[in-house]
Amino acid sequence: MAPRLEARSLVKRFGPITAVDHISLKVEAGEVLGFLGPNGAGKTTTMKMLTGFLDPSEGEAYVGGVSVADDPERAKRQIGYLPEGAPAYGDMTPRGFLTFAAETRGLTGAARDAAVARAVHALSLDRVIDQTIETLSKGFRRRVGLAQAILHDPDVLILDEPTDGLDPNQKHDVRNLIDGMRKDKAIIVSTHILEEVEAVCTRVVLIDRGRIVFDGTPAEFRGRAEGAGTLRVILPADAVEDAVEQFEDLDEVSAMDRHPTPDGRVRFTLTGDDRIALINRVTGVIDGAGWPADELELDAGRLDEVFRALTSRETDHQDSNQGQEVRA
């Protein structure tokens, strides 16, 4: 079966600037792909090509096996899209706007009303349903845009910064919403917020200057950070010999270090490539032996460090031109 969403070597040039440089992706149902990258990396441009708003300079986009270029209407029917900034018609009410969107998607009568009611409920828009959109707060406007995107229960959801402008509670709600829709949809979420990746994404794609520089799970992404996959645990002195022996036997542990603590116990520092497996196996050993472990702590690695490490070339370049304006 064709992937839900596929980008085949997409390229977009604006005059002399290459905004997107051969991006290839396949997204399946059940995946929430976190699309990361610095401002101007090409995230939004890529999404605009996937949704058929922009024509690629090279390459092709497919939605459920349908070419966006050859049969745009059929491709667009399968997509729910929240464009950057959640644009909506300011003079309409959320009810009018959502009804309009439903009609363009071929929903009429009771089916249309049911779809609107479902989206309104999912985004808690009941309170503002008959106010004009231009009078709504930024958070509500974003939610109106999201409601429009999920209205027709699409197979593919493409959301450009869905939580921008929301307060922490609303962010939480939107993440829950995305998580709840995950199992039968392919979802792409672009974001600047790295914690969001941890919260909702099953996969991370980081792009920098139009190219993919990382594609993997959030755990692998975090694993790129220095000190990632490192587990620290404090054990009593009498357990040390046994512990060393058992930890050395674990395939998941690639390096081990131990230091006595001031109160006479020993702190183990265990490193592994797969930190999830690492913590599972190590806690299994500790539980099995019945040691009174203390301060079991996983050094999670800092996402923003990975982000910076993978996309910092440009920053370095700018640093070396201290004070000079670098014009695009």
């Binding site: 605009k48 949704t51 058929g52 708003f53 745009p72 209407e73 059929r74 667009k76 029917r77 997509i79 899209y81 464009p83 950057e84 900034g85 644009p87 909506a88 018609y89 300011g90 969107a101 363009t104 998607r105 071929g106 429009q148």
Partner: peptide
């Protein structure tokens, strides 16, 4: 100006 063109052009209408 308002960005709704993008919305309009990504709805399944020719």
């Amino acid at each position: 100006k308002s960005g709704t063109l993008e919305l309009l052009m990504t709805l399944p209408i020719g």
